[in-house]
Design a protein around this nucleic acid. Structure first.
Lengths: 259, 259
DNA sequence: AAGTGGTCTAGACCACTGC
DNA sequence: CAGTGGTCTAGACCACTTA
């Protein structure tokens, strides 16, 4: 039994939210510090005179807010601030490419992290709508898709699907696992597609189950969704990349001149 | 009773996740279209031969993923794609400012939306660490803080705290509610701070309870956190803004020359 | 009034962790 | 083995929406 009005208080805050509120305040005020264990579900329940499920619901609220992290068999912990990989505004600068450093490697090494790239798949697929639009292809036309996963110090920090029109990629090193020293941008440049301008669009959402697994995401962590288009000197798009980045491990920086 | 191994299948997917998986597939495959109602919790439970709480847990998973939206007394619905306000790369261009159009108004009107700005507070506060760092002030030095809420067609789309050093703002129109035609950037320019370069950093996280309310956020919607710094022609920072944007209503676009 | 989601209870078994 | 979180059951009352 026991809705919020059983004691005559209409619209009173339900116990689960009250417990979550108390814990949230303790975390934000620093009474509970990052890494510290919360009382167990059973302790919280008996302390507040509720069923265990009610205390559990309170924990679920905090988990959805990204404030705590439940570990099976160990306990519930205040979340630790995580390492931040800042994707700098100049990651596509030619001087890095000329030095044989692909964008991701540039970023990771600048922060003292060990980069690793996993090639998950290299396929020919029908172009998704957004890709076809950016590359001015017919809807459903075949494109090369390279699916990569990027890790810094063996922690996954990005999933990236890169699309290149077959007219450009067919028969080139792009179809193979390791396209060239310097990454695919160096390879594309050798093919005559000199990067002159990029266009990036950023939003965020909660991860799908598949992304949660591939990025080892904890509950309550959203992902950044980055859509990137590369243009050559004639203003023609020759490559697009769709990236998914854990929001707790990534911030994107941009520096723009005005006027 | 009833763990996943009761039937001898060790590590089998628990019923709640199985049900969530089926519904997720139906949504992503388009069998359930945006706006459509899902079966009720009681229907799902009886159809799958589980308790109602188990079906309810499946719904909670989809809600945390931002795929569905539960409405008390009505049902659970596949979430509608929301209107997207793209914050264009040229929102700070001088020609808008010269025409008396502040950045937000420029954006909204370009998309046929009616912009409205609520000034929530104009105060002098100690500079937060990040603000002090960007403006090269002493930690805790007083700065002007203007707290705004932005609405498009009466839907909240941004919370923004703008900080200006008191040395610049004191005694000027910036201390008043409506600083000048063209917004605070026009006012700053009249004070001799000509915008030459901006620096923006983007990340995302789940909203705090206060932000959920101020932005009328639904469950499972993260916020974009945008940190913006304005530099004049001498490379001196004269203004920073900390924005919180609902991720389901905002995408940020950037266009950058390379090299 | 009927149907829906929101919350709670009291109890159970499971899987995982760590002493 | 004890303690923790993960999941489930079967039932209940509440608040909200719709007809």
């Amino acid at each position: 039994m026991g809705g919020p009005t059983r004691d005559g208080q209409a619209h009173a805050t339900p116990p689960s939210r009250r417990i979550a509120g108390e814990l949230r305040r303790a975390i934000l005020d620093g009474e509970l510090v990052p890494g510290q264990r919360l009382p167990s579900e059973r302790e919280l329940a008996s302390k507040h005179g509720t069923a265990r499920n009610t205390a559990r619901q309170a924990i679920a609220i905090l988990q959805a807010e990204g404030l705590v992290d439940a570990q099976h068999g160990r306990g519930v912990f205040v979340r630790q601030p995580r390492m931040f990989l800042r994707v700098a505004h100049d990651r596509y600068a030619r001087h890095h490419r000329d030095a044989g450093r692909p964008p991701f490697r540039t970023e990771a090494e600048a922060q003292g992290l060990v980069p690793r790239v996993e090639v998950r798949a290299i396929q020919q697929v029908p172009a998704p709508d957004w890709v076809a639009g950016q590359l001015t292809l017919g809807a459903g036309e075949l494109v090369l898709r390279r699916r990569n996963r990027y890790l810094a110090d063996e922690e996954p920090v990005e999933l990236a699907d890169t699309y290149v029109p077959l007219m450009i990629a067919d028969g080139t090193s792009l179809m193979h696992e390791v396209p060239a020293v310097g990454g695919i941008y160096a390879a594309l440049e050798q093919l005559g597609h000199r990067l002159a301008r990029i266009d990036e669009q950023v939003t965020a959402r909660m991860p799908l189950a598949e992304e949660t697994e591939a990025l080892a995401l904890m509950a309550g962590v959203p992902v950044l969704e980055l859509r990137h288009t590369s243009y050559d000197e004639r203003g023609i798009a020759f490559e697009v990349t769709h990236s998914i980045l854990p929001a707790d491990r990534n911030a994107l920086t941009f520096q723009l001149p005005v006027d």
